[in-house]
Amino acid sequence: MTDEHQDAAGWFEGLDPGDTAGAATAIREGSADAPDDWPAIAVESGFADDDDEYYEALHEATLRATREAVHEAERADDKQLIHAIRAMDDCERVANELAERVAEWAGSRRGDAGTGVAYARTLADDETVDDRRLASLAGRVRDLDDEAAALRSHVERTAPEVAPNLTALAGAVLAARLIALVGGLKQLARKPAGTVQVLGAEEALFAHLRGRAPSPKHGIIFTHEAVRGTHPEHRGSAARALAGKLSIAARIDHYAGDRRPELEAELHDRIERIQARDVE
């Protein structure tokens, strides 16, 4: 059966049986047009003594190849940024939830009870709190709030390295959120501007597509001053202009990587003109 296998080679071709590193590389980088009876060919060529030995080698090689590939993919900087921004959001959300609990609890014991993370922070540092558990819980809120702040400055430090143009236009936090929503900088670079415009407004978008609602004008890019600072009547235009520039920035960051300061000036001009429009 050997002659029909001339043009396609299995992953084990030319490898020493004990060379797991080489085998992993062959599995990751090799290719073939069509499958073949690889176990039989491997035994025939002397790579393995029998099927069992072949499968054992294959198991080891695929584990290593996939572990390496997963590791490389997950270590990519944009993926790290996604973890950081999600962790920041988690810390803020949990701090807020716990702060509510602290406020409710404190209200049952103290006359000066306030609300929010700020109040929990004062309580955490207040020596006069007579309940140890309440004071400790307030301390957790303070710690989580500190952690969220530390994560925010981490995001602000790393986002410009991952996506310099996008960060310059959107700010670090919004840039990180956009990347997180689609799963990576590459994915964001491949999205059309119209998609970037409504990222984070999926529920409204699908309601619209099913014919139940007007189309959403903006998703999370609403947090950008260019949208929020524009009169509601012209926000759609502002969001469209901003999304266009953001997706150009994401593409430059992913495919080219150099800084293009002119993008900021262009965005600034566009938004200024939109905001100068008359309001009825």
């Binding site: 090799g30 290719s31 069509a34 499958p35 294959l58 695929t62 190849a65 996939t66 590939a69 997963v70």
Partner: peptide
């Protein structure tokens, strides 16, 4: 046998899969 591959590109794993 676990493979981190794109199912839309079978040629990237036809050298492994029988």
């Amino acid at each position: 046998f676990a493979l981190l591959k794109d199912a839309r590109s079978p040629e990237t794993y036809a050298h492994v899969v029988e």
